[in-house]
């Protein structure tokens, strides 16, 4: 386990964190592209999923899009962007790829969440005279909340993972520490970078689990 000790040494060495290609810069890049992509994906996917779920239409699209998302390799999409004119557009190719892979889990989970709301509850709400908007805001959205949050969590984890692969096509992010380690046959650096990426994914997942619990609309009602 000498490698783990060397990886630890890499992680606690200040010079590895500072400077242009240092870990801080890479972490900032990673968080920036991930955050922007997740935000764009939420803005695109959630309203669409809520609308489709509310109307009860487009179920095949919402469910099948996950299957498509799973079959397409992240690395291939990033590589296709990098050999296209998009490559000279800074973080754009990475962010577009991240959005593409974040949309399926968001769309599918939010849609399923909306559709799994008990039909008798929906009927009762309509019987009470709720309008479509009231039904959505007071009944469907609160009941769909857990699955919507599952979708956001999966999308966030997917985005963090995809952002690390962006390094394989020469884009920024924490993955660059790993690829740089591979290029210089520095196993300790590879492992150190991998630990950072894995830790970031787990922290993101954990934070979102907590956020989901804190903001759960059902918690207030109970």
């Amino acid at each position: 386990m000498g490698v783990l000790a060397e990886a630890w040494t890499w992680l606690v060495t200040g010079s590895n964190w500072s400077g242009d290609g240092g870990a801080w810069v890479r972490l900032t890049e990673h968080l920036y592209v991930s955050g922007v992509a997740l935000l764009i994906a939420c803005l695109l996917a959630l309203p669409l999923a809520f609308l489709l779920g509310h109307l009860g239409k487009g179920g095949a699209l919402a469910v099948n899009i996950s299957n498509v998302g799973r079959a397409v390799p992240v690395f291939a999409v990033l590589a296709l962007f990098m050999v296209s004119p998009l490559r000279s557009a800074g973080y754009v190719p990475t962010i577009v790829a991240l959005v593409l892979f974040a949309v399926p889990p968001l769309l599918t989970n939010a849609y399923v969440g909306m559709r799994e709301v008990d039909r008798s509850v929906v009927e009762a709400a309509r019987g009470m005279g709720m309008s479509g908007m009231q039904l959505f805001a007071r009944v469907e959205l609160p009941l769909a909340h857990p699955l919507v949050m599952t979708g956001v969590r999966s999308a966030a984890v997917q985005v963090v993972a995809t952002a690390s692969i962006a390094a394989m096509v020469g884009q920024g992010g924490l993955g660059r520490i790993i690829t740089a380690g591979f290029n210089t046959y520095d196993t300790a650096q590879v492992v150190a970078g991998a630990l950072l990426v894995a830790l970031l994914a787990l922290v993101v997942e954990g934070v979102l689990v907590l956020l989901g619990r804190v903001f759960s609309p059902l918690r207030k009602a109970a």
């Binding site: 490698v3 783990l4 984890v157 963090v160 993972a161 690390s164 692969i165 390094a167 394989m168 993955g175 790993i178 380690g181 591979f182 196993t187 590879v190 492992v191 970078g193 991998a194 630990l195 990426v197 894995a198 994914a201 787990l202 997942e205």
Partner: peptide, 17 residues
């Protein structure tokens, strides 16, 4: 579930040693 959360690039890299 934790294993699934680890990004693939990190997973492959952690197995390198």
């Amino acid at each position: 579930t934790v294993l699934y959360t680890v990004p693939s690039l990190a997973m492959f890299s952690l197995l390198l040693p």
